[in-house]
Simulated assay, not measured.
Amino acid sequence: MTKSPSFGARDPSSGHAKQILLGYLRRIRALRDQRREINEDIAEVRKEAKDAGFSARRIEEVVRWQEECEKHGREVVDEAEALFDLYRMVADGQGLAFDEMMDDARDRALVKMFAGEDQTAPKPPTAKVRAASDAAIAAQIDRMTRGGG
Protein backbone atom coordinates (compact mmCIF):
# COMPACT_ATOMS: atom_id res chain seq x y z
CA MET A 1 0.00 0.00 0.00
CA THR A 2 1.45 3.34 -1.03
CA LYS A 3 1.54 6.05 1.50
CA SER A 4 0.06 9.41 0.50
CA PRO A 5 2.31 12.39 1.05
CA SER A 6 1.75 14.13 4.33
CA PHE A 7 -0.02 17.46 4.40
CA GLY A 8 3.11 19.07 5.80
CA ALA A 9 4.96 18.58 2.52
CA ARG A 10 2.38 20.78 0.75
CA ASP A 11 1.67 23.09 3.68
CA PRO A 12 2.45 26.66 2.55
CA SER A 13 3.50 27.54 6.08
CA SER A 14 6.30 24.97 6.08
CA GLY A 15 9.81 26.24 5.34
CA HIS A 16 10.50 24.98 1.81
CA ALA A 17 6.93 25.33 0.50
CA LYS A 18 6.75 28.84 1.93
CA GLN A 19 9.87 29.87 0.00
CA ILE A 20 8.51 28.36 -3.24
CA LEU A 21 5.18 30.15 -2.83
CA LEU A 22 6.89 33.46 -2.06
CA GLY A 23 9.02 32.98 -5.19
CA TYR A 24 5.91 32.55 -7.35
CA LEU A 25 4.28 35.58 -5.78
CA ARG A 26 7.36 37.75 -6.39
CA ARG A 27 7.65 36.61 -10.01
CA ILE A 28 3.97 37.32 -10.71
CA ARG A 29 4.25 40.76 -9.08
CA ALA A 30 7.35 41.56 -11.16
CA LEU A 31 5.63 40.46 -14.36
CA ARG A 32 2.53 42.51 -13.53
CA ASP A 33 4.76 45.55 -12.93
CA GLN A 34 6.43 44.95 -16.30
CA ARG A 35 3.02 44.62 -17.97
CA ARG A 36 1.93 47.92 -16.41
CA GLU A 37 5.09 49.63 -17.72
CA ILE A 38 4.61 48.16 -21.18
CA ASN A 39 0.97 49.29 -21.28
CA GLU A 40 2.10 52.79 -20.34
CA ASP A 41 4.69 52.69 -23.15
CA ILE A 42 2.03 51.56 -25.64
CA ALA A 43 -0.26 54.37 -24.56
CA GLU A 44 2.57 56.85 -25.04
CA VAL A 45 3.31 55.58 -28.56
CA ARG A 46 -0.41 55.73 -29.43
CA LYS A 47 -0.51 59.36 -28.24
CA GLU A 48 2.58 60.19 -30.35
CA ALA A 49 0.92 58.61 -33.41
CA LYS A 50 -2.27 60.59 -32.78
CA ASP A 51 -0.30 63.82 -32.35
CA ALA A 52 1.42 63.07 -35.68
CA GLY A 53 -1.99 62.84 -37.37
CA PHE A 54 -2.40 59.07 -37.51
CA SER A 55 -5.34 57.08 -36.20
CA ALA A 56 -4.08 55.19 -33.16
CA ARG A 57 -7.13 52.94 -33.35
CA ARG A 58 -6.37 51.90 -36.95
CA ILE A 59 -2.71 51.37 -36.09
CA GLU A 60 -3.83 49.03 -33.31
CA GLU A 61 -6.08 47.17 -35.77
CA VAL A 62 -3.20 46.72 -38.23
CA VAL A 63 -0.94 45.44 -35.45
CA ARG A 64 -3.64 42.90 -34.44
CA TRP A 65 -4.01 41.92 -38.11
CA GLN A 66 -0.25 41.36 -38.37
CA GLU A 67 -0.34 39.19 -35.25
CA GLU A 68 -3.22 37.15 -36.69
CA CYS A 69 -1.27 36.64 -39.93
CA GLU A 70 1.77 35.47 -37.96
CA LYS A 71 -0.33 33.14 -35.81
CA HIS A 72 -2.67 31.60 -38.42
CA GLY A 73 -1.04 32.38 -41.77
CA ARG A 74 -1.89 35.05 -44.31
CA GLU A 75 -4.07 32.76 -46.46
CA VAL A 76 -6.35 31.83 -43.54
CA VAL A 77 -6.70 35.49 -42.52
CA ASP A 78 -7.45 36.53 -46.12
CA GLU A 79 -10.17 33.88 -46.40
CA ALA A 80 -11.70 34.98 -43.10
CA GLU A 81 -11.71 38.60 -44.29
CA ALA A 82 -13.29 37.61 -47.61
CA LEU A 83 -16.00 35.71 -45.76
CA PHE A 84 -16.57 38.71 -43.48
CA ASP A 85 -16.87 40.98 -46.52
CA LEU A 86 -19.33 38.54 -48.07
CA TYR A 87 -21.49 38.47 -44.93
CA ARG A 88 -21.35 42.25 -44.76
CA MET A 89 -22.49 42.46 -48.39
CA VAL A 90 -25.42 40.20 -47.56
CA ALA A 91 -26.31 42.38 -44.58
CA ASP A 92 -26.06 45.52 -46.75
CA GLY A 93 -27.67 43.79 -49.75
CA GLN A 94 -30.85 45.84 -49.55
CA GLY A 95 -32.99 43.43 -51.52
CA LEU A 96 -30.40 42.23 -54.03
CA ALA A 97 -30.68 38.63 -55.08
CA PHE A 98 -28.04 36.35 -53.62
CA ASP A 99 -26.48 35.66 -57.03
CA GLU A 100 -26.21 39.40 -57.72
CA MET A 101 -24.09 39.81 -54.58
CA MET A 102 -21.64 37.08 -55.55
CA ASP A 103 -18.80 38.84 -57.33
CA ASP A 104 -16.77 35.88 -58.38
CA ALA A 105 -16.17 32.17 -58.09
CA ARG A 106 -14.17 32.72 -54.90
CA ASP A 107 -17.22 34.19 -53.14
CA ARG A 108 -19.31 31.21 -54.21
CA ALA A 109 -16.61 28.77 -53.08
CA LEU A 110 -16.35 30.46 -49.68
CA VAL A 111 -20.09 30.30 -49.16
CA LYS A 112 -20.13 26.64 -50.16
CA MET A 113 -17.21 25.92 -47.81
CA PHE A 114 -18.44 27.78 -44.73
CA ALA A 115 -22.20 28.09 -45.08
CA GLY A 116 -24.58 25.26 -44.53
CA GLU A 117 -26.59 23.87 -47.39
CA ASP A 118 -29.66 25.69 -46.11
CA GLN A 119 -27.84 29.03 -46.42
CA THR A 120 -26.89 28.76 -50.08
CA ALA A 121 -29.16 29.70 -52.94
CA PRO A 122 -31.90 27.07 -53.27
CA LYS A 123 -31.86 24.76 -56.26
CA PRO A 124 -34.72 25.20 -58.67
CA PRO A 125 -37.46 22.60 -58.24
CA THR A 126 -37.51 19.61 -60.55
CA ALA A 127 -40.32 19.11 -63.06
CA LYS A 128 -41.82 16.43 -60.81
CA VAL A 129 -41.87 18.76 -57.80
CA ARG A 130 -43.36 21.60 -59.89
CA ALA A 131 -46.09 19.27 -61.20
CA ALA A 132 -46.98 18.10 -57.69
CA SER A 133 -47.04 21.69 -56.45
CA ASP A 134 -49.24 22.77 -59.38
CA ALA A 135 -51.65 19.88 -58.69
CA ALA A 136 -51.88 20.83 -55.01
CA ILE A 137 -52.56 24.46 -55.89
CA ALA A 138 -55.22 23.44 -58.45
CA ALA A 139 -56.93 21.22 -55.88
CA GLN A 140 -56.91 24.07 -53.33
CA ILE A 141 -58.42 26.49 -55.89
CA ASP A 142 -61.08 23.91 -56.80
CA ARG A 143 -62.03 23.50 -53.12
CA MET A 144 -62.20 27.25 -52.64
CA THR A 145 -64.44 27.80 -55.69
CA ARG A 146 -66.84 25.14 -54.51
CA GLY A 147 -67.03 26.71 -51.06
CA GLY A 148 -65.05 23.95 -49.31
CA GLY A 149 -62.54 26.48 -48.02
Results as ranks from 00 to 15, higher is better:
M1C: 08
M1E: 08
T2M: 14
T2V: 09
S4T: 06
S4H: 04
F7E: 14
R10D: 13
D11V: 10
D11A: 15
D11G: 13
S13C: 09
H16P: 04
A17R: 14
A17T: 06
K18E: 13
L21V: 13
G23W: 03
L25K: 11
R27H: 10
R27S: 08
I28C: 08
A30Q: 11
R32G: 06
R35W: 03
E37L: 11
I38E: 05
I38V: 14
I38M: 07
I38H: 03
D41G: 11
I42V: 08
I42D: 03
A43E: 14
E44K: 07
V45A: 12
V45T: 06
V45F: 14
R46N: 01
K47D: 09
E48A: 07
A49H: 05
K50S: 03
D51V: 02
A52V: 02
A52R: 06
A56C: 02
E61C: 00
E61W: 02
V62A: 10
V62I: 12
R64H: 05
Q66R: 11
E67N: 06
E67I: 04
E67C: 08
E70S: 08
E70G: 05
E70V: 02
E70W: 01
K71T: 14
K71I: 07
H72Y: 15
G73L: 04
R74V: 08
E75C: 00
E75L: 05
V77R: 02
D78P: 00
A82R: 07
D85K: 02
R88F: 00
M89N: 07
V90Q: 07
V90H: 04
A91V: 03
G93F: 05
G95I: 09
L96R: 14
A97C: 05
A97L: 13
A97G: 08
F98P: 01
D99Y: 10
E100A: 10
M101T: 02
D104I: 03
D104T: 01
A105N: 07
A109Y: 03
A109S: 10
A109I: 03
L110T: 00
L110G: 04
K112V: 10
K112E: 15
M113P: 00
A115N: 12
A115D: 12
G116F: 06
E117N: 05
E117K: 08
E117F: 04
D118C: 10
T120V: 15
A121E: 15
P122V: 08
P122Q: 10
P125Y: 11
T126W: 06
T126F: 06
T126E: 15
A127G: 12
R130Q: 14
A131L: 09
A132L: 12
A135M: 09
A136E: 11
I137R: 15
Q140P: 01
Q140N: 02
R143M: 06
R143T: 03
M144I: 12
T145M: 15
R146G: 15
R146C: 11
G147P: 10
G149D: 13
